[in-house]
Design a protein around this nucleic acid. Structure first.
Lengths: 204, 204
DNA sequence: TTCTAAAATTGAGTCAATTCTGTTTTTATG
DNA sequence: CATAAAAACAGAATTGACTCAATTTTAGAA
């Protein structure tokens, strides 16, 4: 028996997230008042705080949905990477970046990133750090795969390399969301240019 | 004539910054109430908002002092770098990191970083981006210097390399301030390990 | 069905950043 | 030295995130 209580709970969670996502998009993070989210979700302010510790955690739940989708999409590339180190990296990073603005606006990303540094121990802060780690791990997995395929030198420190690539990409992405005028193609080109140095060093 | 008004203004600026720096350290950023800062600086709340757009900008002014000091210290390394690519990078990065907690606690860094992503167009947001750019520029200058000294290959894309090194270091520093337990020696060791890959690729 | 304890919801109240408006101080001018 | 305009100040009022005590709803036993 799934229980009335459990069903109502799941339903309220969903309604809150949907209401918040809509209002965040429409009015921006700051502009979306908790009272408005509560009204739209047809619950009270108190209930929202029963489900989420603070406003940031609501945004956090939305971000997690997005990043998990991206991680999923990335698995395909790791499993069957292009037969060229530069292209393999570019393809994986391309998936991350192209998906990134699907559900989240730049403003929402800015807020999410800010909260994750501001409150690293909050539920969302920890979740965000975990997501970053998963992305780093996936890049590392790609490198290991390329090593197995004989496309990357065996003596390369895969862990350090994965961190280096992720950190650079992430920082570039942060700068990207900070400037509303910045465009995806330029971002990808800049990262390709940076990675070229690495590719030259690690390719067999 | 320096004008009474101008002198009073400078004096109030100074008093506000000093009061804020003290209270941020003692009580943390959130714990330092604007009313308390105003009282300690012997001005009214309204006056503080006449001088700074928001609480974050007060912190911003303190951060700028710190980073400018670091940039200054870095110039010495660029002028006379160790005669080895790995050591040269490590020395410059070491200066940045070792200075970093001199005036600012990790909590203050977290807040500063958060604000700079949250409000990239605020006075502080723009200043912070400018500081990042200056640091990147200094790393680039070091690379150019090493190229001139014949220690780094001439065909290396110095601009892209500088960004790569800065972005990685900066991201590592962000993770460092997010974990109170993290220690400086481990941070430096991790960055050295990551840079080793690059050094191998670019050293003559 | 009825009752009770546990779980969840509610919304008025609290707290602190920011805004606003009337007052005071400084400067420039005759 | 008087005075009006400009600049800066003060602190009360506003706003919005978050809390908490009272109330309602649910699950399960009798």
């Amino acid at each position: 028996m799934s229980g009335l209580r459990a069903r109502q709970k799941a339903d309220r969670h969903r309604r809150i997230i949907e209401a918040a996502a809509e209002l965040f998009r429409e009015a921006g993070y700051e502009g979306a008042k908790i009272e408005a989210i509560a009204a739209q979700a047809e619950v009270s302010v108190g209930t929202i705080y029963n489900y989420y510790q603070n406003k940031g955690d609501i945004l956090g739940a939305i971000v997690s949905l997005e990043v998990n989708e991206v991680l999923n999409a990335g698995q395909g590339v790791v499993a069957r990477p292009p037969a060229n180190v530069g292209d393999a990296l570019d393809t994986l990073i391309g998936i991350y970046i192209e998906h990134s603005l699907h559900y989240l606006s730049k403003e929402m990303w800015r807020q999410a990133m800010a909260i994750s540094t501001q409150l690293p121990d909050s539920p969302f802060g920890q979740a965000y750090t975990g997501l970053d780690r998963s992305l780093t791990e996936q890049i590392r997995a790609l490198i290991a795969r390329l090593q197995a395929l004989g496309l990357v030198r065996q003596d390369i420190d895969g862990a350090a390399l994965g961190e280096l690539i992720f950190n650079n990409m992430n920082m570039m992405f942060i700068e990207f969301v900070k400037r509303d005028a910045a465009r995806i193609p330029e971002l990808r080109a800049a990262i390709r240019r940076q990675n070229r140095i690495l590719v030259a060093a690690i390719a067999v």
